[in-house]
Design a protein around this nucleic acid. Structure first.
Length: 426
RNA sequence: GCGGGUGUAGUGUAGUGGUUAACACGUCUGGUUGUGGCCCAGAAGAUCGUGGGUUCAAAUCCCACCACUCGCCCCA
């Protein structure tokens, strides 16, 4: 084994898994394009400031936020993107996309990085499909993001899925709610663990997110944000709900679904499925009307969702969904070296040019027929072509269907081979 | 960053103080003259995660480190 190993928390995507990736990515792109989204790609590296969002001291921030940051040495810091949205909003502003017909609907794919210890379904490099609608406040845009996520799973063959839905308010109403939540939890401080007591000071909304079942009862009695929404947020939420109802799309209001940072506003949602055991989130998203301003751009509303490909692969396997087979060679060419090998090589490229997947037997020296046929049997080969001295002398190839039900072994002249195979596969 | 679990060929495992570390799957090669799957035979492949310690003797016991993994923190 090599001395040099893969970095902790990183992964090799092997061929067996890669077919799932291809399936997810092509399905996602199809679904997004059908809804009018266009693909865009942004750099992996961005200025650290893009992700810093005005949080305290830089050094403190790097540790807290678990980002891969590089010191450029001239007082500048660059960071490997930990998320897509900020970079996409940056690209929107920088490329003058606010001058395009609004809203702008974009999607992208790529790796994201976070410096954290690995755990189930979480890696230091992970891949996300991301879809955003920028420049639109209409709740129908929120709906479109949600339904795009949902139809993606439907297109991949998932059964009944459901939305978890909540509103996280806006800078007007969210602080009022947080204050009420703090008071409530402060009154029940003795029921909180040390971690949650700390969170109460820093980010009380996160306590709602706690997985600790001991808190369920306490949190069930906590103030709910939907009772604190301002008129704008409340009507936005109400319209989104009525649109979902109109589509007959089921959803569950989950007041424990939260976003802790200020620029997240209004809609927050996740797609859930009943996996083996507990329910879990497949993907999530929401509205971030304050983000563009937070990164120094013009005020621009936005809503979007992100889907982790690694998790999607896991859940596809749990759901026993198999990606459609990809094209692979259907023809195998065996030979006995010398002139027959030269002909075999020539034939290989001739067939591939004709669009017929072909696998050539490699052999430095003359290889036994048995060995070559065994090789053919290992791959999903439909037809083996055999070239030997006899065939060369007669200008033919021996054609052997690997499945006997599809015909007997026969001989076809070399100049008719492409046509014969095309006919065979049609 | 903190805590739990686990480290034996490519994969899955057996082996808990005593010679050349075993088995299955996989891989490769053969099983007469140019033909696959089953079967048979053979081969390659492991410094037993790494380093130290205890012992006449360590895959096996002890310590440390590393890696993998699950969870906490964090979650964009």
């Amino acid at each position: 084994m090599s001395e040099i190993k893969r970095l902790p928390g990183f992964q090799d995507i092997m061929p067996e898994d890669r077919v799932y990736w291809d399936f997810i990515m092509s399905t996602a792109a199809d679904v997004a394009r059908r809804a009018g989204f266009q693909r865009i790609d942004v750099p992996v590296l961005e200025s650290t400031n893009l992700f810093a969002r005005g949080v305290g001291e830089a050094s403190d921030f790097f540790i807290k936020k678990e980002m891969y940051t590089i010191d450029e040495g001239d007082g500048k810091y660059i960071t490997m993107r930990p998320e897509f949205t900020a970079g996409l909003v940056r690209a929107y502003c920088q490329n003058g996309m606010h001058n395009l017909p609004q809203p702008v609907k974009i999607f992208t794919f790529g790796p994201l990085f976070r410096r954290e210890r690995q755990q189930a379904g979480r890696f230091r490099q992970h891949t996300q499909f991301d879809c955003e609608i920028l420049g639109e406040t209409d709740p129908a845009a929120d709906l479109e993001i949600m339904m795009t996520a949902m139809s993606l799973y439907k297109a991949m063959g998932y059964g009944a899925l459901t939305f978890q839905l909540n509103s996280t308010g806006c800078p007007k109403c969210k602080p009022i709610y947080i204050k009420a939540l703090k008071e409530y939890l402060g009154d029940h401080l003795n029921q909180l663990g040390p971690v949650d007591q700390e969170r109460l000071k820093l980010n009380p909304l996160r306590i709602l997110d706690s997985k600790d079942p001991k808190l369920d009862e306490l949190l069930a009695g906590a103030p709910k944000i939907i009772d604190y929404l301002c008129d704008d947020c409340a009507s936005h939420f109400a319209e989104l709900r009525s649109l979902l109802d109109r589509l007959g799309q089921s959803y569950t209001i989950n007041f424990r679904l939260v976003r802790g940072i200020d620029y997240y506003t209004k809609t927050v949602f996740e797609v859930w499925y009943e996996g083996i055991g507990a329910q879990s989130a497949l993907c999530g998203g929401g509205r971030y009307d304050g983000l563009a301003e937070a990164i120094g751009g013009p005020s621009t509303p936005g809503v979007g969702f992100g889907l982790g490909v690694e998790r999607a692969v896991l859940s596809l396997k749990e759901e026993k969904i198999t990606p459609p087979a990809v094209d692979e060679p259907h023809v195998f060419i065996a030979h006995f070296g010398g002139e027959s090998k030269a002909t075999a090589v020539e034939l290989t490229y001739q067939l591939r040019d004709a669009g017929i997947g072909t696998r050539l037997a490699f052999a430095r020296t003359k290889r036994s027929m048995k060995s070559q046929m065994r090789e053919a049997n290992k791959y999903a080969i439909d037809v083996a072509l055999i070239l030997g001295e006899d065939e060369i002398a007669q200008g033919v190839a021996t054609v052997r269907p690997m499945d006997r039900n599809r015909g007997d072994q026969t001989q076809v002249s070399l100049d008719q081979l492409t046509a014969w195979l095309t006919d065979f596969f049609s």
